[in-house]
Amino acid sequence: MSSRIEILNAGGYRSDGRRQYELRTIAIDFSPQGSNPDGSATISHGLTQVSVSVYGPREAKMRSQTFHDRANINIELSIAPFSAGERRRRGKGDKRILELTQTLKSTFEPVIQTSLYPRAQIDIYVQVLQQDGGLLQACINATTLALVNAGIPMLDLVCAVTGGVHSTSALLDLTQLEENDLPNVTIAVMPRSGKIALVSMETRLHVDRFEEIFRLAGEAGTVIHSEMKRAVKEKTAKLVDAMQLGKGSAAPNAENDY
């Protein structure tokens, strides 16, 4: 199936005016969503928007789900019916949702230090508000930020990005339009250690192209990482700053640094 719209025009621009390796605008917001969560974050990659609320570690609702040596991570994902171009209601048992949930869970289970909270449960609620390609990428990035916001110990920030290939040229951070037409792969990296947390491919990709995309996505991961780090830093500095208020002149060295 070929699209009527050119994926990459002669000038080297994509349908939304980006260059090959250009990422979409990232917006990060930590304001609380839902009823009094322990941590939450909303991230938008261009027109894809995902909001995540984290509750816990807290007492497990079902005792059968607990582990005596670590916390249980419970992820629920829902996709708003109005999020895509075509209105579609997906129930809880929808195959696509189950798959995404499972992918998220296996991505974050090794990253969160669950052994610190035996018998507890960490609930992560993912709400997809807008879809324009790179859904998994946005879900992973938003979950990472929400977990950091909730003060849950993690080994590293997990940064995900989507890559695709158009004939022989690689593209990054695909929109829905590009994702429909191109072979694509989502890669989540942990930039500090350089480890890969996830590689997810739902289309066929030529083996010769894989290495290039893999390398590019790794690099793009560090760009997203710096963006996420900046947001976390800003939020932390803001909270620390406000916390100095009650101390008054007791900590004079601290205020001057801000």
């Binding site: 950091v148 110990p153 993690m154 080994l155 590293d156 920030l157 942990m190 930039p191 500090r192 780090k229 976390v232 830093k233 932390t236 500095a237 620390v240 060295n253 601290a254 640094d257």
Partner: peptide
Amino acid sequence: GTLKLAWPGE
């Protein structure tokens, strides 16, 4: 004695 901030993976 300055205030130092950190984040996961730092």
